[in-house]
Amino acid sequence: MSDQLMALDGAQGPKPKKRFSRRNIFIYGTLIVVSLYYLLPLYVMIVTSLKGMPEVRMGNIFSPPVEITFEPWVKAWAHACTGLNCDGLSRGFWNSVRITVPSVIASIAIASVNGYALANWRFKGANLFFTILIFGAFIPYQVMIYPMVIILREMGLYTKLGGLILVHTVFGMPILTLLFRNYFSSMPEELFKAARVDGAGFWRIYFKIMLPMSLPIFVVAIILQVTGIWNDFLFGVIFSKPETYPMTVQLNNIVNSVQGVKEYNVNMAATVLTGIVPLVIYFISGKLFVRGIAAGAVKG
């Protein structure tokens, strides 16, 4: 049979597509408007921080700076005052670094081992402790804070860096443990069995088999913890003292201080400075961040 001669009447080939259909205009229009709304605060923050005070008073918060000045940034970083200290946010920045780095390492180290033990070495009672832990993720921190203060005082860690690290490790544990437990559970159990037949023990399997396979989840955990701990305010204000306040607490104290004249440009520069670290992590990490927050959403 030959159908070469069959006539091709009517509709044929690809269906013509309208680039500007009503549907597309609606979808893209809505998304663009919403996106502008979401971007607006960031824009205003940056624009304000680049203006001089006279311009801030005269102009419109949305208008771009006529004369770009970095003075507010310098001032926010090096000279802004909180109480008696006038060495700017830099102190808070370094405090936050000193708090975040060890807290992230400690919390992830402990939680990954927990997750591994829960996923592969189910021992009696393990599930009970895990259930308490997960319930703990929902308990408002306010409920546990006061006894925590007592415990840390008794350990001599209250208002010490070590105490704050301990607090972050403890309160980060539920969500991280869940994250790691789910990840390790999703790995083929036979791998673990094979390693046991090969004679490897708890730590050897963890370090030689599990760790090399779980790089992605460690990256997710690091993103989750760095942003979480960097953004923390509550623990910072309770478990540290003015000299060791993290950046968020110091920022709040600078901006909400009623002493002296309000310098909105300096305030915004300080705000941007505090937000930079998590924002950079966010834009670099992309999809992993989404995975992290989806898992960390419980943290609220």
Binding site: V34, S35, Y38, L39, L40, P41, L42, V44, M45, T48, I61, T227, W230, N231, D232, F233, T248, V249, L251, N252, V255, Y264, N267, M268, T271, T274, G275, P278, L279, I281, Y282, F283, G286, F289, V290, I293
Partner: peptide, 22 residues
């Protein structure tokens, strides 16, 4: 998606201060 989600990366303190200003 990146635009709609970025505020979540910011702390409540930063969020609060920006909106206080706006």
């Amino acid at each position: 998606r990146s635009i709609l989600l970025y505020p979540f990366a910011l702390s409540f303190i930063v969020t609060g201060l920006v909106w206080q200003w706006l």
